[in-house]
Computed example of a mutant assay.
Amino acid sequence: MRTKKTFRLSFDSILGLSVNAVLTAIALWNIVSAFLGNITVDSMIARLGMASACVANLFSGHRSIRMLLFVVAVILIIAATVIYIHNANNV
């Protein structure tokens, strides 16, 4: 007897796919708006750091890539904060 194979997505896989789609959209929006908008350098660096953190969440199975992207995100956000404070004190 032959059985028909059906492809069914579980709730967890649908939730995982939707979270990955949202994180990808947030990362792309941050990168595109950083280059197209008229924003300051510190804001651009912070947006790229946030995009890096969002992309890091997409690589949940690859621990070394995820950790590297999180370190890059933290460094970029700290650099943006230092630039912002430096510019605020010089005004």
Rank of each mutant, 00 (worst) to 15 (best):
A46F: 11
S13I: 08
G61M: 08
T24I: 11
G49A: 02
R2A: 14
G16V: 10
N57Y: 02
M67C: 05
A34C: 12
N30F: 09
A46L: 11
H62A: 08
H86P: 00
L68F: 13
A21H: 01
A53H: 13
S64R: 12
A79T: 06
N87T: 15
H62R: 07
S52W: 01
V91F: 07
I85T: 12
F35S: 07
T81G: 05
I78K: 05
S18Y: 08
I39S: 11
I39F: 07
V72W: 05
I45P: 00
L69F: 05
L28Q: 13
V82L: 15
K5F: 10
R66G: 04
F35N: 15
I39L: 12
A51C: 08
A53K: 04
F35P: 11
V22W: 10
S52C: 14
L15R: 03
V72H: 07
F11D: 06
A79Q: 00
R66W: 01
A21F: 03
S18F: 04
I77S: 01
T3F: 07
R8T: 14
A34G: 13
F35R: 11
V82W: 09
T6M: 12
V74T: 15
T40D: 12
M50G: 01
I26C: 06
V19W: 03
V32I: 14
S18A: 03
D12I: 14
I14C: 08
S33W: 01
L23D: 02
M44D: 04
S60T: 00
A21E: 01
F35M: 13
R47Y: 10
F11G: 11
V41A: 14
V55E: 00
I78E: 06
A80N: 07
I45F: 06
K5I: 08
D42N: 13
D12N: 15
R63G: 08
F7S: 10
